[in-house]
Design a protein around this nucleic acid. Sequence first.
DNA 1: CTTTGTGCAAACGATTTGCAGGATG
DNA 2: CATCCTGCAAATCGTTTGCACAAAG
Lengths: 148, 148
Amino acid sequence: MSELSPNAIVANLKAQGLRVTPQRYAVYTNLLGRRDHPTVEQLLADLNQGGPVSSQATVYNSLQALREVGLIREVLLEEGVSRYDANVSPHHHFRCRCCGCIEDIPWDAFGPLAKAALRPGLQPESYEVTVQGICDRCSSPNNPCDAG
Amino acid sequence: MSELSPNAIVANLKAQGLRVTPQRYAVYTNLLGRRDHPTVEQLLADLNQGGPVSSQATVYNSLQALREVGLIREVLLEEGVSRYDANVSPHHHFRCRCCGCIEDIPWDAFGPLAKAALRPGLQPESYEVTVQGICDRCSSPNNPCDAG
DNA sequence: CTTTGTGCAAACGATTTGCAGGATG
DNA sequence: CATCCTGCAAATCGTTTGCACAAAG
């Protein structure tokens, strides 16, 4: 999330037993430098905008490898596409129902949830709050969609 | 969710301006009678197990029609598949990370969330808590997966 | 009778996979 | 140099769509 040096990024990858290839490095670095939650399509376009860096299949492979070792996470908030996030510490998500943009909400934003409310037998391990609403871009006078 | 008479189901459909076809009726009734959140594949298998009732395309069409008028909702909790739920009143979800089963959590299970915690500019309209963990089936001695 | 829905099969889009050549450690 | 990765293209899987026929109101 915060700025990492190239060396630190390489170290992160190696520490998880991943070989450091230019493609993997590029994918991970790109994700670390964003706070939106790009789809594969967006990621690929961004990576290759200054010349070819990685193929589509390799982006998928890289994302899978990074996800398996816990360096990134997948975010599923809309139909049909997976998004990816290099912020792996727990947090919540806001999704604009208008433009579809996704934004992190700090973990402590809601305070602690009541605990003993689940039916007996269910063992909770983690939870996440998803808020849906309108972002400031879409609620402004010259908004890109139907709200405002 | 609770047991509805066939007449009430037909009335529900008509009240939303939907034509009542056997297929639509079957899809809606089936969803009303379940509390898991079936995928299209599961729904289709269930509908047609006693002879042909509906084609795949029609199930998709019916689900879309029912969703557009608000009689059912789509639930997105795992990659690649949409699930459907006839419980349209607000509630939360529990997902077993082991068998993938999904279960409703009553709306009031967590008490109210703190309100003023979003960054200024975001207008929240709704929210939902997703809990991940292990269900009782999977935590039992003869469990279907790797927990226990 | 007009409008909308059904079913089939083909189209689609996101993701996965097989495989030959290439890079990493 | 053994292993793992890349890139291409073909395959897969869930979902959507075009169209001719049938059913609903």
